[in-house]
């Protein structure tokens, strides 16, 4: 009995280690894209671990059958973090990694904000505040057809300014959608300033709980914690919200925790410095 548990633990540890290596690869891809074109680097890096953990260790999906009906679905409601999603989808095998270099170019399948022309993208976004409602529709469709399919929505903390988010919060709780998970990338910044300066969000957890959601608060860069909380969410009969505390620009020290990287193109010098920092960091810290 104990040996079986140990074996599972070992497999889990190997999975996490492998994921960390993949995230390093993906981070490299994102930096490379940012050296070619201006993009929302800061908010792509704050949610990278969340998206990667979902696609590589949690969601049931198949790059060979992107339209499989019973797949789990992911909605990047904060559509400006598209580079992180694209890099993860390429790493998962939805399209060739070389295509990442075409991001935002004319004729590319990788648009500035997600739409359905990209293989693996489950929902369009870009206009903030809509992803949770779309997720409700998908979660309802799964319930109607008796599918095990689960729906994950990733929203920004600034995005919670949108009234529609709270309309959807009420709807999902009312419908008791236990197959719906909302993750809020709580990086503390929005376009103009710190989130609490532009419009106060705190107490965010209190708000979510009062709307009837089972709510967790975690470090959004801690893969073990992300897995743990996503596992718990699977047992819930109510919709689950996860406030993932993150750093904007995580992993690039000259951006970390600032708003400099909201949208930028890395100079040659910055790109090399960021790469160097990435290489220097041990994968298992």
């Amino acid at each position: 009995m104990s040996s079986a548990v140990e074996l599972a633990d070992l497999r889990h540890a190997t999975d996490v280690q492998k994921l960390k290596e993949r995230i390093r690869e993906i981070r490299r891809s994102i930096l490379e894209m940012t050296s070619i074109r201006g993009l929302h680097l800061g908010s792509s890096l704050s949610c990278l671990e969340i998206i990667a953990t979902l696609y590589f260790l949690k969601m049931r999906h198949s790059p060979h059958r992107p339209r499989w009906k019973d797949r789990d679905r992911f909605i990047l409601s904060k559509g400006h973090a598209a580079p992180a999603l694209y890099a993860v989808l390429a790493e998962a095998g939805y399209f060739p990694k070389e295509e990442l270099r075409t991001l935002k170019s004319i004729g590319s399948r990788l648009q500035g904000h997600p739409d359905l022309r990209t293989p693996g993208v489950d929902a369009p976004s870009g206009s903030l505040g809509q992803g949770l409602s779309i997720g409700i529709g998908m979660a309802l469709a799964a319930r109607m057809r008796g599918s095990r399919s689960r729906v994950y929505v990733l929203a920004g903390d600034g995005e919670c300014d949108e009234g529609q988010v709270w309309e959807a919060m009420m709807t999902a709780a009312h419908l008791r959608l236990g197959n719906l998970v909302l993750i809020i990338d709580r990086n503390g910044w929005q376009l103009d300033d710190r989130t609490e300066e532009v419009k106060r969000k705190v107490p965010l957890r209190g708000k979510l709980e009062s709307f009837g959601w089972v709510t967790y608060s975690i470090n959004g860069h801690d893969i073990e914690k992300i897995i743990e909380v996503l596992d718990s969410a699977e047992k819930s009969e109510l919709p689950v919200a996860i406030i993932a505390h993150t750093k904007k620009g995580n992993g690039v020290s000259f951006l970390e925790g600032t708003n400099k990287g909201h949208k930028l193109k890395l100079s040659e010098e910055e790109y090399l410095a960021a790469l160097k920092e990435l290489e220097a960091k041990p994968v298992c810290e």
Partner: peptide, 18 residues
């Protein structure tokens, strides 16, 4: 969905995507 047309329209979008 109650008095929330924006939510309704995007829920419809999610249903169509499924």
């Amino acid at each position: 969905v109650g008095i929330s047309e924006q939510d309704m329209v995007d829920i419809a979008a999610g249903l169509a995507l499924s």
